[in-house]
Design a protein around this nucleic acid. Structure first.
Length: 289
DNA sequence: CACTTGACCTGTCCGC
DNA sequence: TGCGGACAGGTCAAGT
């Protein structure tokens, strides 16, 4: 569940549920998922109060009263699931069958709060990570130094958007829009959805994209990401996010994972191909090379 | 530097 | 039913 709209949904949900709470204990299974030393955890996390939760690109930052932060990347399969002291999910609780189901085999770390509630970091594929570090050092992370602008910031303009692609002229527009140093937070779903919206074939070389097409792509990307946040993001399985709601964006997807179905604009059958090493969905009539 | 490919992991689905 | 291979919403480290 890991593109900008999904991570933002988790951020908003967690903000409602855990800000102001104090962490009383933690446990984790693999050093890879949560590499900090026990000493660091004891000194800077145990007893710390959560003061704010921020997002940059697809990275979450849980700021603590110790001036340390938990920096979290969910990668492909990471989840943060909150369960209250009565083993219930947060407001919404749509899935009682999951009550008491955590921790499970995908649980990599658990944090307990002073009121008996818990936060589970689950990650089937173990690509994700949680790192405790001084808040002021977050901007020095290599990823933070290279990552591009936030596409949903109100003052981010279409011209700034187009200008970001100057460094990737020879590659495909799909590879470029997925490049986090170009624009922050775009992943496979919203790349495909926005390129369909702008009627641009994902294999088009960046240098062939016209200013009008960049403007359209900018508008479509922002529209589709804002819609997805409104819908709580995308989820395909029995997934519940931190606040106990399922994302419904996939009900609104126009091309993503819809190969074999009609294009909602022209009725042509949607096709799936590979671009930039990723599964890619297009309407072959609306999006031509 | 820009660009492409493979690696990191586990689970699932699809064809034989 | 079993097995092999491809594939899954992301990023890095290598290679050219």
């Amino acid at each position: 569940m890991p593109e900008l709209p999904e991570v933002e949904t988790v951020r908003r949900g967690l903000s409602e549920l855990v800000i102001g709470k104090t962490m009383t204990s933690t446990s984790s299974d693999t050093p890879k998922s949560f590499p900090n030393t026990v000493a660091d955890v004891n000194q800077f996390l145990i007893g710390a109060e959560i003061t704010s939760i921020r997002r940059r690109a697809k990275v979450l930052m849980i700021d603590l009263s110790t001036n340390y932060s938990l920096v979290i990347h969910l990668k492909m399969t990471g989840q943060l699931v909150y369960v209250d002291k009565d083993a219930r999910f947060g407001a919404g609780h749509p899935n009682d069958s999951l009550v008491n189901a955590l921790p499970d085999t995908s649980t990599r770390a658990t944090i307990e709060f002073n009121d008996g509630s818990q936060l589970f970091f689950n990650d089937q594929r173990k690509f994700g990570w949680v790192k405790l570090m001084p808040t002021v050092e977050i901007p020095n992370l290599p990823f933070m130094k290279k990552v591009g602008p936030e596409p949903l910031e109100p003052d981010f303009t279409a011209k700034q958007f187009a200008d970001r692609f100057a460094r990737r002229k020879k590659t495909s527009i799909k590879a470029a829009i997925l490049d986090q140093s170009v624009i922050a937070g775009v992943g496979n779903i919203y790349a495909d959805e926005s390129l369909w919206g702008a009627k641009i074939h994902p294999k088009r070389r960046v240098e062939t994209i016209t200013p009008a097409e960049f403007e359209k792509l900018y508008t479509e990307l922002r529209w589709v990401m804002n819609l997805s946040i409104e819908k709580g993001g995308s989820s395909n399985r029995n997934y519940v996010n931190a606040e106990g709601k399922r994302g419904s964006y996939m009900d609104f997807a126009r091309v993503f994972r819809r190969e074999g179905l009609p294009c909602p604009r022209c009725g042509t059958t949607i096709e799936k191909l590979r671009v930039a090493g990723r599964g890619t969905h297009i309407c072959p009539y609306c999006q031509v090379l």
